[in-house]
């Protein structure tokens, strides 16, 4: 469990969400979600499958359009995103997909080059190469640069996917179930890696998970979603010591 870093400034949240609503047809996935993400904070969003956790971060990054509510990233309102603003903001937001979402027709090197080719046009080939090597070093996989994603294990794919976001040196990281499908040892390694990324890149992160062990390692603060609303918010100790049966069901 972490304590909030010294740099946290509660007055200037990096993400502000208020009264967010999102439905698919008649199904209301997010009913009324409001919270802030503070600088340097690891915020874990817990919830059962289908509780709208992934929808929430996809709304933040603009992959889904919210029905109503306000989403501000670095103070800029992207609730009704203008493409230019969103493209600029996406350069500062890293998104780790649940499946890794590596481009399977490309090598690891090409996967890591991909986000750089549009956003860092001013970099020389040498500088790009250095960034790629640095990102791979930071996830502990410097030797797989010329491998195809199909040649990597599940944990390695998650790490490479994380490296692909790190080449952009993002200010915010959004992790969509980073430990799903991994064995307990690899899950713990990925959790430690998330903490390492926060230290090294000074990122603020939202981590979607239902892996309570992972959550307890990385969380500064936790939010639990149930039926499209925030059910409980607080630090990990509050959750751990809660008498609430629903919350305790995650710890069993």
């Amino acid at each position: 469990m972490n304590t909030l870093p010294d740099s946290v400034d509660a007055q200037n949240p990096v993400i502000e969400i208020s009264h967010l609503k999102k439905s698919f047809g008649h199904l209301e996935v997010l009913k009324d979600i409001s919270f802030n993400l503070l600088p340097g904070e690891n915020l874990v969003v817990l919830g059962k499958s289908g509780s709208g956790k992934s929808v929430l971060i996809k709304c933040i990054v603009g992959l889904l359009k919210a029905d109503s509510g306000i989403i501000k990233v670095f103070g800029q309102d992207i609730s009704d995103p203008d493409n230019k603003v969103l493209v600029q903001l996406r350069e500062k937001i890293g998104f780790l997909f649940q499946s890794g979402a590596l481009f399977d027709s490309m090598t690891v090197r090409q996967n890591l080059e991909f986000p750089l080719r549009k956003t860092k046009k001013d970099l020389t080939e040498k500088e790009k190469e250095n960034k790629i090597h640095e990102a791979l070093e930071n996830v502990g996989l410097p030797d797989v640069i010329d491998k195809m994603p199909s040649e990597l294990s599940g944990g390695m794919r998650k790490r490479i996917s994380l490296a692909r976001t790190l080449v952009m040196s993002p200010g915010i990281m959004l992790y969509d179930e980073p430990t799903t499908g991994l064995d307990p040892v690899t899950s713990e390694e990925i959790s430690e890696l998330i903490n390492g990324v926060r230290k090294k890149y000074n990122t603020s992160s939202i981590i979607i998970t239902h892996d309570i062990k992972c959550a307890m390692i990385i969380a500064d603060r936790m939010i639990m979603l149930q039926e499209g609303n925030i059910y409980k918010e607080g630090n990990p100790e509050l959750f751990k010591n809660s008498d609430d049966e629903f919350i305790q069901s995650f710890f069993k």
Partner: peptide, 11 residues
């Protein structure tokens, strides 16, 4: 496999 989403978030 969410690769299209990954392209989009890669600007």
């Amino acid at each position: 496999t969410e690769q299209i989403d990954a392209i989009e978030v890669s600007s």
